[in-house]
């Protein structure tokens, strides 16, 4: 099978092997006409908010968490698909330092495991992440290659900004920051870490799991999230969310409570619509009791819930139920701009 991208993408090129697969599998294609639709049932009323007080707070089994502070992980020896000498990089627009050695604009080098790459004002470094993608390190940033192996490629952004674009199986590429770990799930994203370690992640393609402090935020494209020192990742919000929603989420993440009608969570639940299913889903593991029940009711109103995802399991933050609901929502999250 050749790697002819054109034919696989739009049939414009020539790829006999892909064409052979088409011929082989074409017999399974769907050609049946639509059967007459049945009489339409009356529109189901939206489920009313049913505030259920869960008697005891359930220890939240956070989904897909790999603790962000598991930094001491020993990576496998470099071999196979890994970059044996580290990651190559190229500098432009100014100078950079690689393990203390100057790399001038236009020069190339190798960032070795354990080594630091620092870009000065005006300089950008493009780092090749093995054969799975690249990281564009912006001016005034500091990046370390933690490890590279067949099972994981791991960088650390101490401060500054980067853009990552990776084509790889989920969880193969990780970027640590002082407060969280961005676990790639097949994606492109922009990340900024300030001097205090606060991390701002904005996903532009695919999805990222931002993990730390025993919490995980599932951040699909079009969403962003902030992780602050001492708290781990916050609640993801769509990048075009109105200010009132962003402000309320920021206050909720900061632990602000208050009477329901004026509480940050109350505002979020009131303001959230179908486009905010990601935010609401992430809130299910950040709330308990009546708060979780209110979040559940709103999410159930604006998004499809599989029949086998039971209300009581969601209210108990049962991991399988939450994951099943997330999977069913994924199609909606994949909607393009």
């Amino acid at each position: 099978m050749s790697d002819d991208a054109d034919y696989l993408w739009d049939k414009s090129g020539d790829d006999p092997e892909v064409a052979g697969l088409e011929r082989l599998l074409g017999g399974f294609a769907h050609q049946a006409p639509l059967r007459a639709p049945p009489p339409r049932r009356r529109r189901a009323a939206f489920i009313a908010v049913s505030v259920v007080v869960v008697a005891a707070a359930v220890v939240i089994a956070v989904l897909l968490v790999r603790r962000g502070d598991e930094r001491g992980v020993q990576l496998a020896a470099v071999d196979g698909g890994a970059a044996p000498d580290g990651f190559g990089f190229q500098v432009s627009g100014g100078a950079a330092l690689c393990d203390g050695a100057a790399a001038h604009a236009g020069s190339a080098g190798t960032l070795r495991v354990g080594g630091w790459l620092e870009t000065e004002v005006g300089a950008t470094a493009v780092v090749q992440v093995a054969d799975i993608g690249e990281v564009r390190l912006k001016p005034g940033s500091r990046l370390r290659l933690v490890g590279t192996g067949p099972g994981e490629h791991r960088l650390e952004l101490a401060h500054g900004r980067l853009s990552a674009r990776v084509t790889a199986p989920p969880r193969l590429f990780v970027v640590d920051t002082p407060v969280a770990a961005a676990v790639d799930l097949g994606c492109a994203y922009d990340m900024e870490v300030d001097d205090a370690g606060q991390t701002h992640l904005r996903v532009t393609s695919g999805a990222v799991s931002l993990e730390g402090h025993g919490q995980a935020s599932w951040v699909p494209w079009g969403h962003e999230v902030i992780a602050v020192p001492g708290r781990g990742p916050g609640t993801p919000v769509r990048s075009d969310a109105p200010a009132v929603l962003r402000d309320a989420l920021a206050r909720f993440d900061a632990g602000e409570g208050g009477g329901w009608s004026r509480s940050p969570l109350g505002i979020v639940v009131d303001e959230a619509g179908g486009q905010d299913a990601v935010t609401l889903w992430n809130l299910l593991t950040r709330t308990a009791g009546a708060d979780r029940a209110a979040v559940f009711a709103r999410l159930d109103e604006v998004a499809i819930r599989p029949e086998w995802v039971l209300e009581e399991d969601v209210l108990a933050a049962q991991p399988q139920a939450l994951e099943s609901w997330r999977e069913s929502l994924e199609g909606t999250w994949n909607l393009g701009p």
């Binding site: 993408w9 739009d10 049939k11 393609s205 994949n334 393009g336």
Partner: peptide, 28 residues
């Protein structure tokens, strides 16, 4: 792509995925 015979752009249009995502999925 292989069974239904849709092209990448058609898949993007009908699934709501971005063309980039479809292309990545196809190639991987």
């Amino acid at each position: 792509r292989l069974v239904e015979g849709l092209t990448g752009p058609e898949i993007a249009l009908r699934t709501g995925m971005t063309p980039d995502s479809v292309r990545v999925h196809l190639h991987r």
